[in-house]
Amino acid sequence: MNTKNKNARIAGLVYLLLILIAPFRLIYIPGKLFVDGDAAATIHNIAAHDMLFRLGLVGDLVTAVVSLLLTYTLYRLFKDTDRHLALLMLMLGFMDTPLYFFNALNDMATLVLAHGADFLSGFDTAQRDGLAMLFQRMHGLMTNASEIFWGLWLFPLALLAHRSGFVPRFVAIWLTVNGVAYLALSFTGLLLPQYNDTVANIAFPFQLGEIAFMLWILIKGAQPRLVAVHGARAA
Rank of each mutant, 00 (worst) to 15 (best):
L99K: 11
R163Y: 09
I211A: 06
A114D: 11
A172C: 00
W174H: 04
E147I: 01
I10Y: 10
M95T: 12
M108W: 15
A200C: 05
T71R: 02
A39N: 14
L175M: 08
E147M: 12
L226F: 10
V14W: 01
V58L: 15
P193R: 14
D107G: 13
D50H: 11
G31K: 04
L141E: 12
M1D: 15
R54E: 08
L226C: 06
N5M: 04
D38I: 03
A114G: 06
F34C: 02
A212V: 05
L70V: 01
W216T: 03
T176Q: 04
N144R: 03
A172D: 02
Q207T: 07
A145S: 05
L154N: 07
A114V: 09
L111N: 04
D80N: 12
R225T: 09
S67A: 14
V65K: 03
T73S: 10
L105E: 07
S186I: 01
K79R: 15
L185A: 06
L190W: 10
L77D: 03
F166V: 00
A8Q: 10
N196V: 00
F24D: 11
D129S: 05
Y195G: 13
T42E: 10
Q127C: 02
K4G: 00
F155D: 06
V177C: 02
S121F: 12
A48Q: 00
V65P: 03
T63F: 13
V167W: 05
T73E: 06
N45S: 12
H162W: 12
R169V: 03
L55Y: 08
H115I: 09
H44D: 14
G37S: 02
R54T: 11
L175K: 00
H139R: 15
G151T: 15
G37C: 11
W153D: 01
Y100N: 03
W216N: 06
N201A: 13
D124A: 02
V229E: 04
N2P: 03
L61M: 15
L105W: 13
H44I: 00
Q127N: 11
G130L: 04
N2S: 05
L190F: 06
F213P: 00
T3F: 07
N106C: 14
T110E: 10
F24P: 02
Q127W: 04
V35H: 03
L134I: 14
F94P: 04
W216A: 00
M138G: 10
T176K: 01
R54H: 15
T81G: 11
V199M: 02
L131N: 10
L92Q: 06
H230F: 07
I10F: 00
T73R: 08
L111E: 08
L33F: 11
